[in-house]
């Protein structure tokens, strides 16, 4: 078998992608616990997680693009969905996750506003303090 060497780009992506997924999962779990009437510390965790989740995977996606032989042809990945191709599926899933993560982290989303929190009045990171 031919051994493909995964360079630092892919290695960094794997870490960053995992980081995003972890942040998102922890945030979702905390939001669930908060909704079930647990300690309000969960609210802060849910918000912090949701706010941070989209960024590592965004950086990671760019690293993936630059690992391609022709990085400027990356848009060809999104012209069609070939679902026998793990690479095609993966790139679409990556887009889907990024969109969901960004929507959740936007100031208007329910998770960010849970419990009457208003980012406009307190600034984005105000919830981290108390």
């Amino acid at each position: 078998m031919k051994q493909i060497e995964w360079g630092y780009l892919i290695v960094s992506y794997l870490f960053l992608g995992g980081l995003s997924a972890g942040l998102y999962c922890v945030s979702a779990l905390a939001a669930l616990l908060h909704a079930n009437g647990h300690d309000s510390a969960y609210k802060r965790i849910a918000r912090l997680g949701a706010l941070l989740a989209p960024w590592p995977v965004l950086i990671g996606s760019f690293l993936l693009i630059f690992d391609l032989g022709h990085w400027y042809r990356f848009w060809k990945l999104f012209v069609r969905l070939r679902w026998t191709s793990p690479m095609s599926l993966g790139s679409w899933l990556l887009i889907a996750f990024s969109v969901v993560a960004f929507v959740i982290s936007s100031p208007g989303s329910r998770k960010m506003n849970a419990g009457g929190y208003s980012p406009k009045s307190q600034g984005n990171f105000a919830f981290c303090k108390s």
Partner: peptide, 23 residues
Amino acid sequence: CVGCRYCIIACPYDARFFREDKG
């Protein structure tokens, strides 16, 4: 070809190679 090299791994016969010069 975007040069993702997935096919190189998929080929059971190692018949494919990545041309660094052409990407």
